[in-house]
Design a binder for these strands. Structure first.
Lengths: 337, 337
DNA sequence: GTTGGCACTAAGGCATGCCGAGTGCTAACT
DNA sequence: AGTTAGCACTCGGCATGCCTTAGTGCCAAC
């Protein structure tokens, strides 16, 4: 019983099952792949694979389907990442050009990825802790309500309404703004909390309280950009692959809606040497995703944010991984250094 | 055959069907509701209702289920809007207090509504065309790239990166900002496009091109706030009511994702005297929603934006309408005039 | 280590028959 | 005229049983 052939058999099973959705048997295998041996031999190999926990039979007399572990081995050792077709590459390129607003770029990207893979695509907003403060604006909305706006040099804008505690004149607010801005311009968002106290304590006591409130607001904004949000697209694809995991579509939607879950999942995924991370079935920390796989990769100037897709474990990993990787690369290029 | 009793029968059918999910027959009806007549009489009434197209039998020997038209009559004439329970009211109130950021409020609201109704909830961002420009900021990101930020007195912030066409010094940009701001402060967003040309033509020729680019950017931002976005929550509830319309969940997700579809739908819905609009099944302009109903109402200071829910036609209209209306009222109160 | 053969197994498809829920109609009742 | 009881009829749903089919595991032979 040759080891290489066993792997070949596993590969064949995965590939056939992925696109037939049906348990694959020994006879069908020898017919569809020229393995050079008889079905009986394959049966022996399959029995061995089953012993190793790589495949399983849903019932006595059916073919085999890959287990999570089987997919894992397939992804890690057997499959080669398929390159995208030139038309696909062109599509990506042309779609992503001609927009420069961050929200817009991410939105287009995630839609494109979901179409490309026929799965749900998600993208995390880029981390900004290294981004620097470009501008600060305080706008008096109501007697005590101030809109605090923070603009980073990456083009990201964060805003928040805060209550300064007592009435504040327009020019006093302008003064505070100048003061904050003078000290804070160029400060990386990540260092915001270290610099703010000094600014506040330098303010005249009359406005100390307001300054403190404003500083708190700014700090929250700075954290917002770290705490991250995400965009997704293609949830309808879940329903299409309905046939696969009809029961679990609910939990999956919940997971997607609870962005925290997805964000944690994405950030915990370790990339393999090929630059793509795959999390299969029960490998996922979240129970609702027990029958789903996530394929993700990092992107952006400092490769900290993630982009990826979520689909049934029964998915075409090579193609999907290729798509995710390609889209991430284009995205990185667009966002520039 | 008494007309009032016929309506009573329709009401009973709708109510029973809504919570049993099964066609309801004449005998079951007389048992569960004290109608004071025999099942044979009900059968006659039902035959009449069927002739009028208000109910239909899925097959020869099954009970009847309401048609879209039947639901319509039920909603319009029969049902009374049920008041929410005090605990529910308290829940709404306490959840919505203690946040003043617009995004945050809408997000909480929509989650609450989806939990309350067990449906998908959607909320449209409030219209801002009557909001006034509070502040404008130009930030030079790269030699020719300028981030245009527009802050409205409602607390809404819009931003966009634009290409000004040629290099621009920091102080020149500051000059332009002052100029724009002087003219535009206090202008309602809706009138932006009428005022901008005058500002541009007043700029010195050297910076005319840049000013024009900036003006275009501002105009787009002004339109953005009209063209509206929406937030949603509770898509997982779709899967729960899986059993009802398993086939159509795909199209529904698509409709939700294509925000344009939903926004148009919401804005086209006319409210009835009770202040709630209901669109049932095929009444919906979008085909994917043929088996879904939308219950929505206006909210906000000038009652232009919409909030509502989307669910299967087989839904508990009275309770749902009450929830939507109540949440909309609280939301209006929070946003204040 | 590979192969062919054979007994065995469970699922899926299909016909059959039966039950129950529900209808429509008619004739009688109030 | 409206209401009711009764009855024949119609399907859907479910259980039953049968057959076919795809697949396995094992063994003896190559």
């Amino acid at each position: 019983m040759s080891e290489p052939r066993k792997l070949e058999v596993l590969r064949a099973i995965v590939e056939d099952y992925v696109h037939s959705r049906e348990p694959v048997g020994s006879k069908a295998l020898v017919e569809r792949h020229h393995l050079g041996v008889s079905s009986a031999t394959i049966r022996n190999d399959m029995a061995a694979l089953e012993d190793e926990g790589l495949i399983t039979a849903p019932h006595t007399s059916a073919g085999r389907i890959p287990t999570d572990k089987g997919y894992r081995l397939f992804v890690d050792q057997i499959s080669a990442v398929k390159p995208l077709s030139p038309p696909e590459r062109r599509a990506i390129q042309s779609l992503l050009e001609g927009s420069d607003d961050l929200d817009d770029v991410l939105d287009r990207t995630v839609r494109m990825l979901s179409q490309l893979t026929n799965q749900v695509a998600v993208v995390q907003y880029p981390h900004l802790s290294r981004a620097q403060i470009r501008h600060i604006e305080f706008v008096l909305l109501a007697p005590r309500k101030v809109l605090v706006v923070l603009i980073a040099d990456s083009g990201k804008v964060e805003q928040r309404v805060i209550d300064v505690g007592h009435d504040l004149a327009d020019d006093a607010l302008a003064g505070l703004r100048t003061r904050f801005l003078a000290t804070l311009a160029g400060t990386p968002l990540g260092r915001l909390s270290m610099v703010l106290p000094a600014v506040v304590s330098a303010v005249a006591p009359v406005h100390r309280q307001a300054a403190q409130a404003l500083a708190n607001g700014l700090e929250i904004l700075g954290q917002n950009s770290r705490e991250e949000r995400m965009v997704m697209a293609g949830t309808a694809n879940l329903a299409r692959s309905n046939v696969d995991f009809p029961l679990s579509i609910g939990p999956v939607l919940e997971a997607l809606e609870e962005q925290v879950v997805m964000l944690r999942l994405l950030s915990e995924m370790a990339q393999d040497p090929r630059g793509v991370a795959v999390s299969i079935g029960r490998e996922n920390p979240y129970d609702g995703l027990a029958e789903a796989s996530v394929v993700a990769t990092a992107y952006g100037p400092d490769s900290t944010a993630k982009i990826g897709i979520l689909g049934p474990t029964r998915m075409d990993y090579p193609t999907t991984m290729a798509a995710v990787r390609a889209v991430a690369r284009y995205l990185s290029r667009i966002l520039g250094p």
